[in-house]
Nucleic acid binder design. Structure first.
Length: 796
DNA sequence: GTTGCGGCTGTATAT
DNA sequence: CAGCCGCAAC
């Protein structure tokens, strides 16, 4: 991957080279003459940049220029000659952030300093380290990194071997558990008894088996990258000291997201010199579910005595209303470190809030709105599509937007969606590549023995497995032995021999310098019959898959060899297709962290969806607070215009469900919010809140409220008050109109708020088939219909 | 050994 | 509603 340009940078760092002296001199001269990277920094940023020695905690609110400060700090370290590039370690969480930082450091430094700092994600840096020291944890340096899919398949094998019912105890669940243990830096022997008892009392046992299996496969999973390095540092002080000498200055981005393992890794590395600068924002901690410990940031001062705390509070990104709305929401959380963001940018548009009848309506409205924004609106000058983002809580929400945008021809880009490298054909192709570079990769072997179909089904594979196991060799060798022993006959034997022969040839070519890795890849895909398989495939997606394969081969060009490519794939999870056309971005709130857009849409603000019910059920108030931080992250992505919306009805599992506006909606300070009332649907003003609650059915409310004590937010209380007080409350002027459920009969004339008049064709419980005069046949829920003759009573 | 159908289940968030 | 898994027929 691109994080490291210099293969031998570790060695280079260990043995200073001739150039370094002149570099230092040049750096010093530069530093004395001018420090352009200091220009435009505010006092707080400047302090963070210039405090080079000792521990520093930079508490940087959203949009306060933390990347600017961080990159300036690196530039400062280098140009003043305080450190050589390879003595600086900067860690981020995402590849995107690493790339961004690398670019900005490059721009700041220009050609002034040779070499690059150690800049990359926790994982990429750990792989690099682990390759050097693999043998210390029983691996070889060419270990493979398993993806989630391999992981699950492996675990499943172990689970079945234990005679456990993998229906009741799914492999996914165990994978999640093991992951969470690794996040907390618990090796199998260090696993607390309380945890080992999880998973039907087999958790600890299976965990140990899994680790053993990984070792025999010469493989590790994501969590291992960190866990192994922490283990090595703890058990081999000499190795640790080496790194402590190399990395003299450490910087960490998004510190609030570090988990225990990452924290330990950092602490070990920084233990001797304490030159560590962590940047973070407790209000943006949104990864608790994957082991992040906000506690890491909260107790920084205790861990690193004499730490300097710098708060960045001036926001340069958003208007005062956007900032005000975000602050209002986040104020609902307790135990914050507390920052007060301010901006000098006064005025601007308020945060817009709009309710919709249903999810489709929401998508339709947003599509129209986005089209209008391109040519300019009353509120905003014209902006390009790439200036607009839609941020959703869960990726399944994206679908309605994709559908709508496809039908109106609005270009969009899904960020972090189903990834290129997770596609079936790509994973198959990669399994071939993996087998070429590491013959003992049994998981890859299992994946492709019978892809394309070679007449090698379960039975044949089992024979191979038995043979491999009894001889203690890989599946690939086991297959060879099986053939030699004539343990397989017919077509399968011929095909298997062909495959093994092919693999040997491709492996040989890969080792041969005169054959490029691209040729090897093409050879493998061709000769194995894999491409042919898709060419013969008549399904509509086959051509697309072939295209993807071509793209895959093309991607190889950027790498030295297959090995390097596979590494890249294993670690790089973002797929930024550099497609020049302007597109609206659709992504999850999580994926949006660290990004900013002039215009942001935040759809789906409904209780249960956002905040997510599951989060609240599983983690109670803590979960709710993390959801609230997510809301905060979402709002603060916006520079000029932020639009929040919710829908009264949404299909869930194909069924229509009604929902209440998110409690976060009620936490938005009114003075920063504009409530939009689209024409046609929410036309009337009177008694709206009561209507809405009646429509939703009072019993639903009580039921939900009784279910958990998490329903104690101000927003929830207000809703309840509104319900009990019969007078027209000072409600926002939005409503979802419907009559309480009543029975309808086939043939009856009815009226629907959205579809107009129609006739009931069939009744199935509360679901009805209605033939509408204007909108055709629809399935609707009874509570959204009124008898046609009473329609006049309802103020539409 | 392969393919196709039907029933069941289940939703987050990601390196 | 959709994807996955298991089962039954080819």
């Amino acid at each position: 991957m691109s994080t490291f340009n210099d293969e031998d940078a570790f060695e280079a760092a260990a043995a200073p080279q001739g150039g370094s002296l002149s570099q230092r001199a040049m750096g010093a001269a530069l530093g004395a003459r001018a420090a352009p990277y200091l220009d435009g920094l505010n006092p707080a940023q400047r302090e963070a940049v210039e405090t080079l020695d000792g521990p520093v905690l930079m508490l940087a609110g959203a949009g306060t220029g933390k990347t600017k400060a961080l990159t300036a700090r690196i530039a400062h370290l280098l140009t003043t000659g305080r450190a050589r590039p390879n003595e600086v370690l900067a860690v981020t969480f995402t590849n995107k952030a690493a790339r961004e930082m690398k670019n900005r450091v490059g721009t700041l430094l220009g050609e002034a300093v040779e070499g690059v700092p150690w800049l990359g994600t926790f994982h990429s840096i750990c792989v690099k380290q682990l390759r050097r020291h693999a043998e210390l944890v029983g691996l070889k340096s060419n270990f493979t990194i398993l993806d989630t899919d391999d992981q699950i398949r492996l675990l499943k094998q172990l689970i079945v071997a234990e005679g456990v019912d993998d229906k009741r105890w799914p492999a996914r669940m165990l994978a999640g558990l093991i992951d969470s243990w690794k996040n907390r830096a618990w090796t199998p022997d260090a696993l607390p008894a309380s945890e080992a008892g999880d998973y039907n009392n087999l958790g600890g046992k299976l965990y140990a088996q899994y680790q053993d299996r990984l070792r025999t496969l010469n493989a590790c999973d994501f969590g291992d990258l960190l866990l192994h390095m922490v283990t090595i540092f703890q058990t081999h002080p000499d190795v640790l000291e080496q790194y402590q000498r190399w990395f003299r200055y450490i910087m960490v981005d998004e510190y609030q997201d570090t988990n225990v393992a990452q924290y330990m890794w950092l602490r070990l590395l920084a233990a001797s010199h304490k030159n560590i600068c962590c940047v973070g924002d407790d209000d943006q901690s949104i990864y608790g579910w994957r082991g992040a410990e906000v506690g890491n940031i909260l107790r920084f001062e205790k861990d690193f005595e004499g730490a300097k705390i710098v708060k960045l509070e001036q926001n340069y990104r958003s208007t005062e209303h956007i900032l005000g709305a975000a602050s209002g929401v986040i104020a609902g959380n307790t135990g914050r470190l507390g920052k007060t963001l301010f901006t000098e940018a006064k005025g601007g548009e308020k945060v817009r809030l709009i309710g919709h009848w249903d999810g489709e309506e929401e998508a339709r409205w947003m599509g129209d709105e986005i089209e209008a924004m391109q040519t300019g609106t009353r509120r905003m000058d014209p902006i390009g599509l790439d200036q607009i983002a839609i941020l959703v809580r869960a990726s399944h929400q994206m679908r309605s937007f994709e559908d709508r945008f496809l039908s109106i021809g609005l270009p969009y880009r899904v960020i972090g969606g189903p990834r290129f490298y997770e596609r079936l054909e790509i994973r198959d192709a990669m399994a071939y590549f993996r087998l070429i570079t590491s013959p003992a990769d049994d998981l890859a072997f299992e994946r492709i023995v019978n892809t394309p179909k070679r007449g090698l089904g379960d039975k044949a594979v089992q024979k191979i497995q038995t043979m491999a196991r009894s001889n203690g060799v890989s599946l690939r060798d086991g297959a060879r032995l099986l053939l030699e022993a004539k343990g397989l006959g017919g077509k399968g034997a011929v095909e298997l021999a062909k495959l093994l022969d092919g693999l040997d040839r491709w492996s040989a070519s890969a080792r041969n310098d005169s054959v490029s890795h691209i040729e090897v890849a093409e050879m493998a895909l061709e000769e194995s019959g894999y491409t042919e398989m898709w060419q013969n495939d008549k399904t509509p997606e086959a051509p697309g898959r072939l295209d993807n394969l071509k793209e895959l081969v093309k991607a190889l060009e950027q790498f030295e060899n297959l090995q390097g490519f596979l590494e890249h794939i294993a670690l790089v999870m973002d797929n930024d297709s550099e497609d020049a056309t302007e597109k609206v971005s659709i992504m999850t709130l999580h994926a949006a962290k660290g990004l900013e857009f002039p215009a942001v849409f935040l759809p789906g603000w409904e209780d249960g969806l956002f905040p997510s019910q599951r989060s609240m059920d599983e983690s109670g108030v803590k979960g709710l607070e993390e959801e609230r931080r997510l809301a905060y992250v979402g709002i603060t992505r916006a520079e000029k215009l932020c639009t929040i919306s919710f829908a009264g009805n949404r299909r869930v599992y194909g069924q229509w469900q009604n929902a209440l506006p998110s409690r976060f909606v009620d936490e938005l300070p009114e003075r920063h919010v504009d409530v939009l009332t689209p024409p046609g649907i929410y036309g009337h003003q009177a008694g709206s809140a009561n209507d809405m609650l009646d429509a939703l059915g009072g019993s639903d409310l009580h039921e939900a409220a009784a279910k958990a004590n998490v329903y104690n937010s101000p927003g929830w209380r207000r809703l309840q008050e509104r319900q009990s007080s019969r007078g027209a409350p000072k409600a926002r002027n939005m409503t979802i109109d419907a009559q309480a459920v009543s029975a309808f009969t086939v043939g009856e004339r009815v009226f629907h708020q959205k579809f107009g008049y129609g006739e009931v064709m069939a009744v199935d419980g509360d679901k009805l088939d209605v033939s509408f005069d204007k909108s055709g046949d629809k399935k609707v829920i009874g509570k959204f219909l009124v008898a046609a003759d009473s329609a006049g009573d309802v103020p539409f």
